[in-house]
């Protein structure tokens, strides 16, 4: 790996780190999800600054050019990041689904309770008309009480 390439990769990685750090500061990216980016960027920097690690690893795996090892790592890191996103996505999917269901059930429950209330009012009115027709006396009394109280 040439010194030029090393500098180039280091500059790009540092810029990326600063950019993501700034995004976290602006609350555009949640730190929890940025962690994997920081992890990858710092590993990349380490491999870039100490190319001996890369040399050693590439010899171990029989890769001719150490820079190819870096590419291989990059590829692996991308898969890692995508994996974490799939986990997050699945989690969010579940939560959103349950929220939608809860919202729907609660709206239904509110409707139901409102209808029950209306029904009670309605009954009171019906009992009032019944009093005019001569309904059961105890019920009439209750109605009278209610009407007196409401007056």
């Amino acid at each position: 790996m040439s010194f030029k390439l090393q500098i180039f990769i280091a500059v790009i990685t540092v810029i990326a780190l600063l950019y993501i750090g700034n995004k976290v500061r602006n609350r555009v990216i949640e730190l929890k999800y940025a962690l994997v980016w920081f992890f990858v960027a710092i590993l990349f920097l380490i491999l870039d600054i100490f190319p001996n690690i890369l040399q050693w690893l590439s010899q171990l795996l029989g890769i001719v050019l150490p820079v190819n090892m870096l590419m291989f790592f990059g590829f692996g890191f991308i898969l890692l990041i995508l994996y974490t996103f799939t986990v997050v996505l699945t989690n969010q999917d579940r939560r959103i689904k349950r929220l939608i269901q809860e919202e729907a059930l609660l709206a239904y429950r509110v409707d139901e309770l409102e209808r029950e209330l209306q029904k009670k009012d309605f009954k009171v009115r019906r009992l009032k008309t019944r009093t005019a027709d001569g309904g059961p006396e105890h019920k009439v009394k209750i109605i009278k009480k209610n009407t007196e109280e409401s007056k």
Binding site: K97, I100, Q101, E103, A104, L105, A107, Y108
Partner: peptide
């Protein structure tokens, strides 16, 4: 009737 606020697919609807 229960109205789901957002279209969520058959599985989510049945689960509701």
């Amino acid at each position: 009737v229960i109205h789901l606020p957002i279209n969520s697919g058959i599985g989510a609807a049945v689960q509701a």
